[in-house]
Structure formats: C-alpha cells, structure tokens
C-alpha cells in the first residue's frame, strides 16, 4: 500500500500560548512544537497497515523549514519518507490545495489526516482535500479496515457511530480510537538514527490564494477565582440565582 499521512506542526498541548504585539499571529518564542496529536493516531494506524499489508509510508507537511524536525520525528517513529511543501499554511483552503496538487500527481491508496490540528482547530483541511480530489472521506474516524481495494471505516457522529464502505483511495480524519492511546509510538534511538538518512524532499508551493484572513488574536479573559461553597444547597442557589445555569 502507498500510504500518505498529512502532518501538522503545532504547539505542544501544554505550551503557553501568546500572540505577537500586533495580535495577528502566534508568538512562537519559547514554544515547543510537536506532531499534531490527532495526526499521531493516523501515523500509528499507517504503521499498523504497513505491517499488515506491506507498503510505503510518506509523511507530508505544508510549512516552512522550521517544521522539518516534526517531519524527522515522524520518520523516526517509522515513516519511510517525508515531503515538505514549502509554503506558509495561511488558511485551510491554501493547505488543502497544496496537498491536493501533490496527491493528484502521485498514486496514494490511503490518505490519513488528523481530524483537526490543535492550533487553529479548523477541522477543515481533510474534508476540503477529499472534496478537491473527489475522493471519499470519513471524519472523526475511529475504526478502519482495509480489504484489498476497499475500505470499511467508522466515524463518530453526535451520540453514536456511522460505518461506511467504499473503494480506495480514501481520505480519513483520524482521532483516538483509530488506534488506542497505548499503541502510539515514541521514537527510539535506532529510529532517530535511521530517520537522519531517510529522504526528506522539499517541494515548491503551487498556489497561494487564501480565502480568510486572521485579523486579531486575543487570549480568553482570565477567569475570576473559583467560589468555593460548603454545601450543595448553596451551590444550587448560586447556580440558579447567580450563574443562571439551571
């Protein structure tokens, strides 16, 4: 199988998020970047599929040179080759079009993305990519079985699950459940060593027109201190009269 995993380079979950003085972009000073947590489930699924069916895993990212350590980490975890499309990921449609142009010119059986990236929380790129390629798509994918040239995929829907079948190639937006948390792999020393000699190809960007423009980022208002109460009657009173939550 020719497996493609789309990887986002995002601030670590525990990172303090600050914005630049103009409030128009993330201030990356001191921020540790990681593989997007949702993408890790998809990457691990690709490793499982390769182990079961054979094949090659390519990891793909749209971003500047600063994202290469994240791609190297994906190689250290077990991907075979990496591609970086050299473009600023301005918004979802620009990223989706860059991915589409690469994928349309190559042959992939399965395109695994994470459901969303934890930076902009758009949950847009995988569905856009599938639509641009006119390929089937399953979001919030928590189970995926490949049988020859067909796939059965289960996605979470509000309050339940939906199961779909169709032909490859397929695009999925993965999340926890696609593989279990305990199955996620961390790079070992041998992986890190071999990753250095695996190919990381840089492709030039093809399209640039963004559809949206971020004009301002602010941090949420700091919550006032918690009001500790001694008994449940007082809590019910406050929830009703003060918070108007019940």
């Amino acid at each position: 199988m020719n497996l493609l995993v789309c990887i986002s380079h995002v601030p670590d979950t525990t990172a303090k998020i600050n914005f630049d003085a103009a409030g128009t972009a993330l201030d990356a000073t001191g921020v540790q970047f990681v593989i997007n947590p949702y993408d890790e489930f998809s990457l691990t699924k690709a490793l499982h599929l390769k182990e079961a069916h054979g094949g090659t895993i390519t990891v793909l990212n749209v971003g500047g040179p600063e994202t290469e350590p994240t791609l190297r980490k994906a190689l250290a975890i077990g991907a075979d080759q990496a591609i970086r499309i050299n473009a600023t990921p301005t918004d979802a449609i620009t990223v989706a079009k860059e991915l589409k142009n690469h994928i349309a010119a190559n042959t992939y059986d399965l395109i695994l993305c994470g459901q969303e990236s934890i930076d902009y929380n758009g949950q847009q790129v995988p569905a856009m990519l599938a639509a641009l390629l006119n390929l089937p798509f399953v979001n919030a994918c928590v189970d995926l079985v490949i049988d020859g040239s067909s796939a059965t995929a289960t996605g979470e829907i509000d309050g339940g699950h939906a199961t779909y079948t169709g032909n490859l190639p397929l695009v999925v937006g993965g999340k926890k459940g696609l593989v279990e948390e305990k199955d996620l792999r961390i790079p070992n020393m041998r992986g890190i060593m071999t990753a250095r000699s695996k190919p990381l190809q840089v492709l030039e960007a093809t399209e640039h027109d963004a559809a949206t423009r971020a004009v301002k980022f602010v941090k949420p208002a700091v919550k006032s201190a918690v009001k500790l109460v001694d008994n449940v009657d007082e809590l019910v009173h406050l929830l009703h009269n003060e918070a108007k939550a019940i």
Binding site: I17, D119, T212, A214, V215
Partner: peptide
C-alpha cells in the same frame, strides 16, 4: 467578520471571510 475559538480554547481569533 466573525469570532472563533483557536489554540484549543487558549486563543480567540477574529477572522475576515474575504476570498
């Protein structure tokens, strides 16, 4: 122009739908 959540609730973004 609308407001949306970003950075896993650690940021609030104002975004223009221009293109």
């Amino acid at each position: 122009t609308v407001v949306r959540g970003a950075f896993s609730s650690k940021g609030i973004e104002t975004i223009e739908l221009t293109g």
